[in-house]
Write a protein that binds this DNA or RNA. Structure first.
Lengths: 118, 118
DNA sequence: TGAGTAGTACTACGTCGTGTAGAGGCTCCG
DNA sequence: CGGAGCCTCTACACGACGTAGTACTACTCA
């Protein structure tokens, strides 16, 4: 899947945080701290769309952009991808479980338990 | 931490797979299918060292390279890094737990249980 | 002791991804 | 009809990575 650049991720963050699709202009306004040219935002939105991180639909002359997947799904996928890198998934998973903090281990445990009950 | 390039990963794979440190020449021999110039291998080993993926110790005039961390540790760290990308770690973890295959969920469960017992 | 060999450090170059943005064109409101 | 707004295309610099050459050093063997 490949990771995202820094600006790309900022923009994804904005779209993930915002309910509903945004236009380039709106994104630009929300990322105002960086003072980017409008075309910069458009270019990045376009690239993200081409990489299937976003989908877009027409709204008059403008496009409205929306994440193709939730941030959680993206993160989970990244984690799985990391996992794929190893020959021994079991060892890596074990290691991972040992590495997360206690509260996170608790969350995992709970999620796994709920899984079991289905 | 940043990911690795393709050749970099091949070389890490060789070093991870091999018990004990290797010289550039040995790595080059083990990666023979790619027919690389010896200096290419050295350059990459050097970059990996600079990025702290490897450590090296002298062996006569040669260096012997060795992974700074196990592959599992690396993978676990990548997974944690992905996890850091989200605002809601709990949601991402839950999502992750739901996404792994059944047998992998089992492995996770077991690792977490063992954790608890300590 | 001199030459070859193996190993190192340094430098370099092409390519690709990404941040950044300009130029020019279409469209719709007033 | 003209300007504002949005789009598409093109471009450029920079850093990472794959790839490798050159030049220097040191050990070995005849």
């Amino acid at each position: 899947m490949k990771g995202l650049g820094e600006l790309e991720r900022s923009i994804m963050d904005i779209l993930w945080a915002h309910e509903g699709p945004l236009t380039a202009r709106e994104v630009g306004r929300l990322i105002a701290d960086r003072d980017l040219a409008p075309t910069t935002v458009m270019t990045v939105l376009d690239r993200l769309t081409r990489k299937s991180f976003l989908t877009r639909t027409r709204d008059g002359r403008a496009w409205r952009y929306e994440p193709a997947a939730s941030r959680d799904a993206y993160v989970a996928e990244l984690m799985l991808e990391a996992l794929d890198m190893t020959g021994d998934r079991s060892a890596a998973l074990t290691r991972f479980a040992q590495t997360v903090s206690g509260s996170e281990a608790e969350i995992l445990r709970k999620a796994l338990t709920e899984l079991e009950e289905e």
